[in-house]
Amino acid sequence: MKNLILLGLTVILFTACNQEVRYTQQSPEIDTYKKAMDDYKNMNWESMPKHYADTAKIASNVIEEKALTVSQAIEKYKQDAAGFDWVVEKEEYEMVVTDKGETWVNFWGIWKGTMKSNNKVYVIPFHNTARFIDGKIVEEYGYWDNSEIVLDIQKIEAAENSVLSEENSIDN
């Protein structure tokens, strides 16, 4: 009887230890995503692609059909970075395995940037989620509200166009 109880406890312990992890805050995929985010934050554009599969698609504030390749996304990041001095703060990561067996790493952070053209500071919470296959990012989605920046850029462009129109009318 004693052996039967020990056998039962051993089976329970073994079963409990071998349960699949479906949620965690520590994994190789999270470590990879942290490195990809570090490359973004440090504007290390040459190193960034190594974390992504060759066929990866990045959809930042767009639907999947408008997703960019990694090289296209990096070119956009370079253009965006040229207009700001910025940092990313309050980073949080988690990994989940879906019911379909897909591995996703979720990221939350605060993007804080000063626009060079107007010296205004913007503080924007954002969320990224990236699906991994064989240790590489195969798709990534990013979500944030940049409407305040867009409106301010439109104001700056309108003011510049107004000045150009005045200069042209004076010259004629």
Rank of each mutant, 00 (worst) to 15 (best):
L4C: 10
I5N: 00
G8V: 09
G8M: 11
T10G: 04
A16L: 06
C17N: 15
T24S: 01
S27P: 03
P28Y: 05
K34S: 04
D39V: 01
S47D: 14
K50N: 08
A53K: 04
D54Y: 05
S60C: 14
L68D: 11
L68I: 06
V70I: 04
S71N: 12
Q72G: 05
Q72E: 14
A73R: 07
A73V: 08
I74G: 06
K78D: 12
K78T: 12
G83L: 13
W86H: 09
V87C: 07
V87Q: 11
V88D: 10
K90W: 14
E91P: 05
E94Y: 12
M95W: 01
T98N: 02
T98H: 00
G101K: 01
G101F: 08
G101L: 05
T103N: 05
T103D: 06
W104A: 04
W104L: 03
I110Q: 10
I110T: 11
K112C: 08
T114V: 09
S117H: 10
N118F: 04
Y122Q: 01
V123T: 13
I124D: 08
H127M: 00
T129D: 15
F132L: 04
G135Q: 00
K136T: 04
I137C: 02
Y141Q: 01
Y143G: 11
L151A: 15
I153W: 14
E157W: 07
A159E: 15
E160N: 14
E160F: 12
N161K: 07
S165M: 13
S169M: 09
D171K: 13
N172A: 08
